[in-house]
Design a protein around this nucleic acid. Structure first.
Length: 837
RNA sequence: GGGCGAUUAGCUCAGUUGGUUAGAGCGCUCGCCUCACACGCGAGAGGUCACUGGUUCGAGUCCAGUAUCGCCCACCA
C-alpha cells in the first residue's frame, strides 16, 4: 500500500496485468446459458475515435463487468469496420491516390512520400493494399485507446469486416439469400452519387436544405393556351415524359388524355392524372422526368411511361439525346454538368419566350448520400437487393414482430425501429460500384456475342469462399476465358459495408467455421449501439438473422445517447468541435472518463462535461484515500459486528447493494453509479468520521468498527468496479487475491443483518448540527463542545443513545444531555478552541 | 405533414409505482491545515418544477391542450 496513493499510471499498469492474466478471456467451454454475449459495435476505422464512441463503449463495459461479476462468462469481442467508402476516401486523401480498375497490379508500387497535387492512378489491388495498410495502423491505435479506457474486451476475439473470415461469412450469407430468392438483381432507377459513382441505399440518405428556384415554363398545346408548370430543375426538360396533375383538380381535368409539346425540345408528351400530384405545389401540374427524383420513379412506374434518360453516371448530360428530342438544341447541353446545363436551358427558354418571369428563389430539401457532397441523381443500373420487407407486407410484418420481441433500453427507441420498417419504400440495395469491400461472389457466362447471361450466374461452392471474381475463376473455366465470347465475366461490384456488418454476431461467433462456438454465443444477449444506426446496423442485422436463422440476433439492445460538445452542440468534423479522448484521459484519468460516460443516462444525449470528469477523478482519488485509511488499521480476527452504528451502516449498505443490482439488471448503469456514489460519500463524511475515534481505541467496540470498515470497503470496491475499473483494482490488490473484476458481485446476504439504518442517519444529523455550530462560530472542528443537548421523542433519543460514544468522539463533546418530550431540538454549547501549537 | 424525446437552482442533471418544508454535483459566499485525503473538510445562499386547464384529500410526478428546443420519418414539381 503506497503512502500517497495516486491514479496516475494505473491504466498501463493494470492493462498489462489483465492482459497477462487473461482476466477477460472468454472460456469457450462454458455452456450457452452461462454465457453473456455482447455484439459489440465494430467502430468505423477512419482516422480517430471521438468522445461519442468512448461514451457508449464505456457504458457497455460497465454492464459487461457487472455481468461478469455476477458469474456470467463474457463473450465480449471487438471488431473493426474497415471495409467500405470511409476507408477508401481516407486512403485517397492520405496518400493522394485514386483507384483505376483498368490498371494492372504494380508490385513495386509505393505511395508518394508527399501527397501530390494531382492524384496518382493506381490499380485496384494496389489500392486495396493501401487500404489494408492504413486500416491496420488505425486499428492498432484504436485498440490502444480501448485498452487505456479499460474495456474488458477479450482481445483474442477481434475481427475486421474486410478480413477473410468476415468475407467468407458475408459471401456465404449472400449466396444463401440468393438460393432462397431473398437476394435478387434488378435493372432499375437507383439513387446514385455522381462523385463516388456508386448506388446508395435508402438507409444512407439524408436531406439537406438547398437553395433552388421555381422556373415557370410553358408547354405547348396543339392549338390553344400554353400549360404552365413550375420546376426547380429546368435542365431536365429533355428528359420529360409526361405532365401530371391530381385527378380531382378541375383546372387540369380537361387536359387529361391530351398531349402537349415540350418547349425547346419538341417532344410530344401526355397529360396524366395521379393522386401524388399536389394541387398546392407550384402550378398544380408537374412535369415527370426520367429521373429527377424518387417521385418521378413512382410516376414512371405506376403510369407506365417510357424512359428518356439524359444524366450519366458521372453526373453530366449524356452525349446523345433520347429519341425524339431536338438534336440541335440538345447538342448545346451534352457533356455539361447539371448546373451548367441548367444555366444554358434557362437562357434558351428566355430567348424562346417559354420562361415566364424571373425564377423564384426558394430553399427546399434535397436528397444527399450522407457521406456525399453533391445531390444524388437517379440513374438506371443493374443492382443487387436483399428483401427487407420494403416491397412485401408479410415480410414487413414479420420484421416488425421481431422488433417487438427485442427488449429495448430505453423502450421508446423501439418506435424508431417501427417507424423505419413501416416507412420502407423498397428493398435493401446492397451492391456498390466501389473497390474496398467484399465482392459479390458471382460470375456470369458470356454468350456467343460476349454478352453476360445475368439470369444464369455462376455460383461458387461455399467451400471456396471467400472468392474475388475479378481474380478467381469459376469452376469449369480458365482465366483465358475471362471476357471472351462463350467464357465468363466476374460481377464487378462489391457489397455495401452494412451487408457485412449486418452479420457481426455470425462473424464474431465464427458461424460455419466453428459451429460449436456459435452454438455457445448465438443468439447473443446484448446489442449496444447508437441511435442513428437503428435504421442501418440494427435493422439489417435483424433482417439477416431473421432470414438465415429465423431468430432474433440478440435478446436486448441498449441505445446510448448522443454526445454533444461542451456547448451542447452536436459534434461534427465539419464544425471542428470534435473532442478527442486521449488528451482528456491523460488529464483526468480513465476512471474519470468512465465516470462521466456512466453518469449519462441510457439513451440520453449528454454533453462533454469537464466538470463531471473532475468529479469522477475526485471520486476515484477519494476511493484510494478512504481505502488507505481503512486498510491502515491492523486487521482483526473474524468476529461479530456488535455496535449499533456499525450495524446501521452495514444495513444501509445492504440496501444500496440491492438497488445497484436492480439498476444494473434493468441496464441502468447510471442509476447504479449514482446509488453507490451517494452511499460512499456519506460513508466517508459521516460513518468514518463517527467511528474514527472508536476504531483507534481498543476492545470489542473497536474490533466491531474495524470489521465493519473492512466489510464495507470490500462491498463498495465491488460495487464501483464496473465504473472505476482501475482504482478499484488498485485497492483490491492491496489486500485481496486475484482481480476485483473476477470477484463475485456483492449480495445483501454477505452483510450482517439486524441493523437500523436510522441510527446512522440520526447520528449524522446530530453531528451535522455540531459542525454547523462550529462553522458558524468560525472555529476549527477540533473545538470541544462543552454541552450538547438533544431534545426529541423517545425512539429518536434511543438512536442517539445507541450512537452516543461515536457522537461524543466525533464532536469532541464533553457532556451530552438528552431531553425526552415533544420538543425537537439540538443545542450546542461550544468550549474554547484549542490553542494553536 | 406524421412520430419520439426533452423543458426542475447561474450551469449539468437526479427525482423508480402521485404523499409531509423539491435533491445532488459544479459554480458562488463564509469558514477550517480536524492524526486517509488541501486534487481535502465543514457550513451557507440559490428553485412560483415551461405555460394553461383537468383528475385527486393531495400533482414536479397522472390526463388534455399550448409554447420552445432536439431527433427520426415523409412523394423535395
Amino acid at each position: 500500500m503506497p503512502d500517497r496513493p495516486t491514479l496516475d499510471g494505473l491504466e498501463a499498469k493494470w492493462d498489462a496485468v489483465w492482459h497477462e492474466q487473461g482476466t477477460y478471456a472468454f472460456d469457450r467451454t462454458a455452456p450457452r446459458e452461462q454465457v453473456y454475449a455482447i455484439d459489440t459495435p465494430p467502430p468505423t476505422v477512419s482516422g480517430s475515435l471521438h468522445m461519442g464512441s468512448v461514451f457508449g463503449y464505456a457504458q457497455t463495459d460497465a454492464i459487461a463487468r457487472f455481468q461478469r461479476m455476477r458469474g456470467k462468462v463474457l463473450f465480449y469481442p471487438m471488431g473493426w469496420d474497415d471495409n467500405g467508402l470511409p476507408t477508401e476516401r481516407r486512403v485517397q486523401n492520405y496518400y493522394g491516390v485514386r483507384c483505376d480498375p483498368g490498371l494492372h497490379y504494380d508490385p513495386s508500387f509505393s505511395p508518394p512520400s508527399e501527397v501530390p497535387k494531382e492524384p496518382v492512378s493506381i490499380s485496384r489491388p494496389n489500392f486495396v493494399e493501401l487500404c489494408l495498410q492504413l486500416t491496420a495502423e488505425d486499428e492498432k491505435a484504436f485498440e490502444h485507446l480501448w485498452r487505456t479506457v479499460g474495456l474488458s474486451v477479450d482481445w483474442a476475439q477481434t475481427y475486421t469486416t474486410i478480413g477473410p473470415e468476415a468475407q467468407r461469412a458475408s459471401q456465404r450469407a449472400f449466396l444463401r439469400n440468393l438460393a432462397r430468392d431473398e437476394a435478387y438483381a434488378q435493372e432499375a432507377p437507383t439513387l446514385w452519387d455522381v462523385d463516388f459513382r456508386t448506388a446508395v441505399a435508402q438507409a444512407e440518405l439524408e436531406d439537406r436544405e438547398m437553395p433552388g428556384a421555381y422556373h415557370r415554363i410553358g408547354f405547348h398545346r396543339a392549338d390553344a393556351e400554353p400549360v404552365f408548370i413550375e420546376t426547380t430543375r429546368p435542365e431536365l426538360l429533355p428528359a420529360c415524359v409526361a405532365l401530371v396533375a391530381h385527378p380531382d383538380d378541375v383546372r387540369y381535368q380537361p387536359l387529361f388524355g391530351t398531349t402537349v409539346t415540350t418547349p425547346l425540345f419538341g417532344v410530344e408528351v401526355p397529360v396524366l392524372a395521379h393522386h401524388l400530384a399536389d394541387p398546392e405545389k407550384g402550378s398544380g401540374i408537374a412535369m415527370i422526368c426520367t429521373f429527377g427524383d424518387t417521385t418521378d420513379v413512382t410516376w414512371w412506374r405506376e403510369l407506365d411511361l417510357p424512359v428518356r434518360s439524359i444524366i450519366g453516371r458521372d453526373g453530366r448530360l449524356v452525349a446523345s439525346p433520347p429519341d425524339g428530342v431536338e438534336p440541335a438544341v440538345y447538342a448545346e447541353l451534352a457533356g455539361k454538368t447539371t448546373k451548367q446545363a441548367q444555366k444554358r436551358v434557362v437562357e434558351l427558354l428566355h430567348e424562346s419566350g417559354d420562361l415566364v418571369g424571373e425564377p423564384k428563389a426558394i430553399t427546399h430539401p434535397v436528397k444527399f448520400y450522407e457521406k456525399g457532397d453533391r445531390p444524388l441523381e437517379v440513374v438506371t443500373s443493374r443492382q443487387w437487393y436483399i428483401r427487407n420487407g420494403g416491397r412485401d407486407a408479410v415480410a414487413r410484418e414479420e420484421l416488425l414482430q421481431r422488433g417487438k420481441e427485442l427488449a429495448w433500453h430505453p423502450s421508446h427507441m423501439q418506435t424508431r425501429y417501427d417507424n423505419w420498417v413501416s416507412g420502407l419504400s423498397g428493398d435493401w440495395l446492397i451492391s456498390r460500384q466501389r473497390f474496398f469491400g467484399v465482392p459479390i461472389p458471382l460470375w456470369y457466362p458470356l454468350d456467343g456475342a460476349g454478352e453476360p447471361r445475368y439470369d444464369e450466374p455462376l455460383v461458387p461452392a461455399e467451400s471456396r469462399l471467400p472468392v474475388d471474381p475479378s481474380n478467381d475463376v469459376p469452376d469449369g473455366f480458365d482465366e483465358a476465358q475471362r471476357g471472351a465470347p462463350g467464357g465468363f465475366v466476374g460481377d464487378p461490384d462489391i457489397m455495401d459495408t452494412w451487408a457485412t456488418s449486418s452479420l457481426t454476431p455470425q462473424i464474431a461467433g465464427r458461424w460455419e467455421d466453428d459451429p460449436d462456438l456459435l452454438g455457445r454465443v448465438f443468439p447473443m444477449d446484448l446489442r449496444p449501439q447508437g441511435p442513428e444506426i437503428i435504421r442501418t446496423w440494427l435493422f439489417s442485422t435483424v433482417v439477416r438473422s431473421h432470414l438465415e436463422h429465423d431468430v432474433l440476433p440478440w435478446r436486448a439492445t441498449t441505445i446510448n445517447g448522443w454526445v454533444l460538445d461542451p456547448d451542447r452542440k452536436k459534434m461534427a468534423k465539419s464544425k471542428g468541435n470534435v473532442v478527442t479522448p486521449m488528451p482528456l484521459i491523460e488529464e483526468y484519468g480513465s476512471d474519470a472518463i468512465r465516470y462521466w460516460a456512466c453518469s449519462g443516462r441510457p439513451g440520453t444525449d449528454t454533453a462533454v462535461d469537464f466538470g463531471q470528469m473532475k468529479v469522477g477523478r475526485r471520486l476515484a482519488t477519494k476511493l484510494l484515500n478512504a481505502s488507505k485509511f481503512v486498510l491502515g488499521f491492523p486487521s482483526v480476527a473474524d468476529g461479530p459486528v456488535t455496535e449499533p452504528v456499525d450495524l446501521a451502516m452495514l444495513a444501509a449498505l445492504a440496501e444500496v447493494a440491492g438497488s445497484v443490482t436492480a439498476a444494473f439488471e434493468d441496464y441502468d448503469y447510471a442509476r447504479g453509479l449514482e446509488r453507490a456514489e451517494a452511499f460512499f460519500w456519506s460513508f466517508c463524511d459521516d460513518y468514518i468520521e463517527l467511528v474514527k475515534g472508536r476504531a483507534y481505541s481498543e476492545g470489542p467496540e473497536a474490533a466491531s468498527a474495524l470489521r465493519a470498515l473492512r466489510l464495507a470497503l470490500d462491498v463498495q470496491l465491488r460495487l464501483f468496479a464496473p465504473f472505476l475499473a482501475f482504482a478499484t483494482e488498485e485497492v483490491w490488490s492491496w489486500w485481496r487475491e486475484g482481480s476485483v473484476h473476477r470477484a463475485p458481485w456483492p449480495r445483501a446476504e454477505e452483510l450482517p443483518g439486524g441493523g437500523d439504518p436510522d441510527v446512522l442517519a440520526t447520528a449524522g444529523a446530530v453531528l451535522a448540527q455540531v459542525r454547523k455550530a462550529k462553522s458558524a462560530a468560525q472555529v476549527t472542528m477540533k473545538t470541544p463542545v462543552r454541552l450538547l443537548r438533544v431534545g426529541n421523542a423517545t425512539p429518536v433519543l434511543d438512536r442517539v443513545r445507541a450512537a452516543q460514544t461515536d457522537l461524543v468522539n466525533a464532536g469532541i463533546v464533553q457532556s451530552l444531555e438528552v431531553v425526552e418530550g415533544d420538543a425537537d431540538f439540538v443545542e450546542v454549547t461550544l468550549g474554547d478552541p484549542p490553542t494553536k501549537s
